[in-house]
Design a protein around this nucleic acid. Structure first.
Length: 437
DNA sequence: TTTTGAGTTGTTCGA
DNA sequence: GTCGAACAACTCAAA
């Protein structure tokens, strides 16, 4: 006879501690069977067999498995199409309910809507709850109930709304006995799902208190370890956003602001999913991008002849990470100096960034291109030399990633700054003049 | 309804 | 060398 269970479906919340959906499942009426699915629909889109994100997930699953074995349970890991996997699970278990945490990306919303129908057809309860953000959807909105599109008033309202109770930690450890008892199952190897190990080391899911306290002063210097390096853990949920906001956010206002930006862009993506393909401000889709493929390739490879730009791109290519200040510089350079469509840059970051998150990546690129909500004005063209002088004055970051920058082997600038700036202002100006009333 | 103040991260120019 | 204004208007949010 099949055993009655509740499934907890892990997605981008790969932890047992302070996991809202898991906590609710454990408090429910049936033993909880933890499940993770390597979704073929997502994996098939990845080009690199050594994609570091898959390695990161795999490593996190092994850690989860260990913790679950300590609770006399296991982690069921499958590889396939989501609906097929649940179809199979229904043959193996008497599934009474499926719990999961909300995912706000367009693909996930569509998938979950389809799965909701599938579960309803089988009289399986489907419970999806908020976990990966602090405030979602319509929780922080204007007086008239409409979503904010400007960060500053949004953040004011966010801060006015937050209470300690909302950040309280859910102690799922106390519910260890509520897991479905089962002998440990094997997790498929990376090779079995068509991938190989990435030669990248991952940052720890722990922050340095001193770094957070000095965040405001040190965050802009790429040669300094002045940022938290926690983005990948927020991306895959190996760290609780509530715990981070409660403990680290209280140490530094500007660090908390960054977490509010995260909620902000997730909220924007929820309300305005068209930003995935289009400019938030439609008139910016009139820009006559040059889209020179050779120049794009030089930018990707870190061969533009601008050391700070090339350093950033090489850091990205070699580590799957780029310092935030440098992300802005390379994005400004691609869109404004080279006049290449922000979507090209966004797609490249999506391929390379270990911490890639659709909402933040799209928001950041549209900000840099000037097309986004609350974006930089288009005449704000970063000068790579001034940025270097301000934020890498001893050239330590540049030397680390572009050691040959002073040698004859280093390429000449792909375009002269002054010329590129003039060209940018002219092209943007042409696109934006004669605005419709 | 109307009005007012403001808007992540910058650069350049001229006094 | 330093400082303030201009860059370009527009739209948002709130009073």
């Amino acid at each position: 006879m099949k055993q009655a269970v509740s499934v907890f479906w892990f997605r981008r919340d790969l932890r047992l501690h302070d996991n809202t959906g898991l906590f609710q499942a454990l408090k429910g009426d049936y033993p909880v069977l933890p499940v993770f699915i390597f979704d073929k629909a997502i994996l098939d889109e990845l080009e690199d067999p050594a994609d570091a994100r898959v390695s990161f997930i795999h490593q996190s699953l092994l850690a989860l498995q260990q913790q679950l074995v300590a609770a006399d349970s296991t982690l069921v890991v499958r590889h396939g199409a989501v609906k097929q996997v649940f179809f199979d699970l229904c043959c193996e278990y008497d599934i009474k309910a499926v719990y999961t945490n909300n995912d706000y990306e367009p693909y996930a919303r569509k998938r979950d809507a389809e799965m909701s129908d599938f579960f309803r057809g089988r009289s399986i309860e489907f419970i999806s709850v908020k976990d990966q953000v602090i405030f979602e959807k319509a929780e922080v909105v204007k007086e008239d109930g409409l979503p904010y599109t400007i960060f500053t008033p949004y953040s004011r309202k966010w801060r006015a709304t937050i209470t300690a109770a909302q950040l309280r930690s859910l102690e799922s450890e106390k519910l260890m006995g509520s897991y479905h008892k089962q002998n440990a199952l094997d997790i498929p190897s990376l090779q079995q799902i068509g991938f190989s190990h990435a030669a990248i080391s991952f940052p720890a899911a722990q922050w340095n208190e001193i770094t957070i306290k000095r965040y405001k002063e040190q965050r802009d210097f790429p040669a300094v370890a002045g940022t938290s390096r926690l983005s990948v853990h927020l991306r895959f949920g190996t760290l609780s956003i509530r715990a981070l906001a409660r403990e680290a956010g209280s140490l530094n206002e500007s660090f908390l602001s960054e977490l509010i930006w995260r909620d902000f862009y997730q909220m924007i993506l929820w309300h305005f999913p068209q930003v995935v393909a289009s400019s938030f401000k439609p008139i910016y889709d009139r820009i006559n991008w040059r889209n020179n493929e050779k120049e794009f390739e030089a930018w990707c490879q870190g061969l533009t002849g601008y050391p700070i730009v090339d350093a950033g791109m090489r850091e990205l290519n070699q580590t799957g990470f780029m310092h935030n200040r440098v992300r802005m510089i390379v994005a400004s350079f691609l869109t404004k100096h080279l006049l290449i469509d922000w979507r090209w840059g966004e797609a490249y970051f999506a391929k390379k960034l270990l911490d890639f998150d659709l909402s933040a990546n799209n928001g950041g690129w549209q900000w840099a291109a000037g097309s986004g909500c609350d974006a930089a004005p288009y005449f704000r063209v970063f000068n790579p030399y001034i940025q270097t002088k301000k934020f890498d004055p001893e050239l330590r970051y540049i030397r680390q990633w572009v050691p040959e920058f002073e040698s004859l082997n280093y390429p000449a600038p792909i375009v002269k700054h002054e010329l590129a700036r003039e060209r940018c202002l002219q092209v943007y100006g042409a696109a934006l003049k004669d605005r419709k009333p």
